Amino acid sequence: GAEQKLNILDYLDDLHKQKGNGTIITTQSQDIRTFSPSCSRGDRTRYFLKVQDGCDYYCTYCTIPFARGRSRNGSIAEMVKQAETVAASGGKEIVLTGVNIGDFGKSTGESFFDLVKALDRVEGIERYRISSIEPNLLTDEIINYVATSRRFAPHFHIPLQSGSDEVLKLMHRRYDTALFKSKIQKIKSVMPDAFIGVDLIVGVRGETEQFFNEAVRFVYGLDISQLHVFTYSERPNTQALKIDHVVNPQEKHERCKKMLEISEKKTHEFYSSQIGKTRPVLFEHPKKGAPMHGFTDNYIRVEMPYEKNRVNTTCKILLGDFNETGDALTVTRIIE
């Protein structure tokens, strides 16, 4: 089990006793129930708090339930304690992570919404971001709460995987395009400037040209900010291997390219819509010789000349035009 990887030394003696291929099955994936909390800090100013692990969804293309086990989580009290530790160390931003974070609470009788409300009360943390959350688990009460929250950012990352209802059925996803679209519309109705990132998989088994074209039309019509596009690759022992119609590698490449072009257009349009607006920015440690950068609450990358005293501080700024490379907005002026 993945949760035992830190204890690998404990199993080495048993490995010497094995015959044949030397494989040790320590725990069947369906029996994994332990949760190992972690909160890590990368090279940026933000922290990543794992609130959940495993998944009870058996999508036809995915091996995560077999590799990571059943859905499980720590308690809200434990997560709050982790956030308080981050605040005490000077951390300002936390990203909530997990395999299926909207499923939080299954092993403790709590809920993800309860977790959001509890974390929002932790003093010292200025900003939380919710990482990938299933559309069917992103409830209206969560969206409404984020819209008025003191600390949760207007930034969502929602897996769509396909914009074709027929392909979603083949994938065994738990929603259709109508539900997905309603979630986007709900977010935008209460947070017009929210950044919305969307996961897509192209070239899955069963994705005919007709179904792909349906997906293109659907995605193009969504009021979103960015696409994260993945090219389907087959995984042993998945149910997807039983589906007819295999997409050849060249066609997968072309479909990926087409979706990425849509993504670039969506991101440029979203950035353009924010020019001239005032947003809070948390500035990060820049790389040597690079301009200072940071992200607004709604995930606009911002650049300005380096000022050491601005690192890991939040400032309200007036957003300017695109920088020279077109991947960030400039700062017209710092307001406070």
Rank of each mutant, 00 (worst) to 15 (best):
I201M: 14
S182N: 08
D165W: 04
N136F: 04
E251D: 13
F218I: 07
K242E: 12
S182V: 04
F180P: 06
I143D: 10
S162G: 13
D193A: 14
N248L: 08
N248I: 00
V216I: 15
E214G: 00
Y175Q: 12
A178N: 12
L137E: 13
F212L: 01
G197L: 03
E251R: 15
F156E: 03
G206P: 01
S225I: 02
R150A: 13
Q226R: 12
D193W: 03
R150N: 10
N136S: 14
K186W: 02
V198N: 14
P154E: 12
V190N: 10
I196H: 06
S149Q: 04
A215C: 09
T208Q: 02
G206C: 06
H228P: 03
L179T: 09
K183L: 09
K169P: 00
V167N: 03
Q161R: 03
G197H: 11
A194H: 01
R235E: 01
F212T: 00
P236K: 02
D176E: 10
H245Y: 13
F195H: 14
Q210P: 00
R151Q: 04
R173A: 13
E166P: 00
Q226H: 12
V167E: 05
L179G: 05
I133P: 00
L241H: 03
E251W: 14
A240V: 05
L168P: 04
T231W: 00
E207K: 11
S189E: 07
F180Q: 09
V247D: 09
Y175M: 13
G221C: 02
L138D: 15
S132T: 13
E251Q: 13
H253Q: 11
D176Y: 00
I187L: 08
R151L: 07
K188E: 11
T177D: 15
F211E: 15
F212N: 10
L222Q: 12
R151M: 08
N144D: 15
G203C: 04
L137R: 12
N144L: 11
D193Q: 14
A178C: 10
S162T: 10
V229D: 14
E141I: 07
P236S: 14
E209V: 04
D140V: 07
G206R: 05
L170N: 07
R205G: 04
D165A: 07
D199R: 05
R173P: 01
N136P: 04
E254C: 00
L137F: 12
A153C: 15
L168V: 06
F195S: 15
E166L: 10
T177M: 13
K181F: 00
S225R: 05
F156T: 03
V229R: 10
L227R: 04
Q161C: 09
P192G: 09
I196M: 12
Q185K: 15
K188G: 11
V204R: 12
S182Q: 08
K169C: 00
S162V: 12
V190D: 06
H157V: 00
R150C: 08
A240N: 03
M171I: 01
M191F: 05
D140S: 15
E214I: 01
E254K: 01
F211Q: 13
R174G: 09
G221R: 11
K242I: 01
V247W: 02
L137D: 14
F195L: 02
P249K: 10
F230Y: 15
F156G: 06
S132R: 08
I184W: 06
E134Y: 07
L179M: 10
K169L: 02
